[in-house]
């Protein structure tokens, strides 16, 4: 067993797990943060995307031990008692998700984009979401929601023309 400790959504968390355990497994099964999804388990679908020191990572491809001492943000870390994150609110307002399975990963990828680029073009957004597969939506309303959230986070109103 390996002892791992990391910051998850602002809290210090530790677990004792077999060394081959992935970050995703620790998040879901030791820390009970089941928002990050186990989709393909080989890094193709992006449903497990989390932020590691601010960078979007497929948690199914990272060993828990590699996350030692790092700062992890999952979908559970976005909303607070004041309400949802602007991205979550925009996704809800525009019905950007359908079955929702890809949603936690998509929103985390979008959050990483907006932290780096507060005013992304449609092509920037397509590029940022390209590692997150969605079977339901055609991505159209997701892209619109990321644009809306970006405007809100820049202090503009959501419905201003891009």
């Amino acid at each position: 067993m390996t002892d791992v400790s990391m910051t998850v959504n602002g809290e210090e968390r530790t677990a004792s797990v077999p060394p081959e355990t992935t970050l995703l497994t620790v998040l879901r099964e030791n820390f009970f943060l089941t928002g990050s999804k186990l989709g393909c388990d080989v890094g193709d679908c992006g449903a497990c995307t989390v932020l590691v020191d601010g960078i979007p990572v497929n948690a199914c491809l990272m060993l828990a031990g590699q996350a030692e001492g790092r700062d992890i943000v999952t979908i559970e870390g976005l909303a607070n008692q004041d309400g949802m994150h602007p991205l979550q609110q925009a996704f809800e307002n525009l019905a950007s998700l359908q079955c929702g399975f890809c949603g936690p990963g998509v929103i985390i990828s979008a959050k990483a984009l907006l932290e780096e680029n507060p005013d992304p073009s449609v092509d920037d957004i397509r590029d940022a979401l390209s590692g997150n597969l969605c079977r339901c939506t055609g991505y159209t309303k997701m892209i619109e929601a990321v644009q809306d959230a970006a405007r809100i986070m820049r202090g503009e109103s959501a419905d201003e023309a891009a």
Partner: peptide, 17 residues
């Protein structure tokens, strides 16, 4: 039998609709 070689549209493949 996996998404590496069963290719489906990503956000980069989708047109403006």
């Amino acid at each position: 039998p996996n998404l590496t070689n069963y290719i489906m549209p990503t956000s980069l493949d989708m047109p403006h609709i």
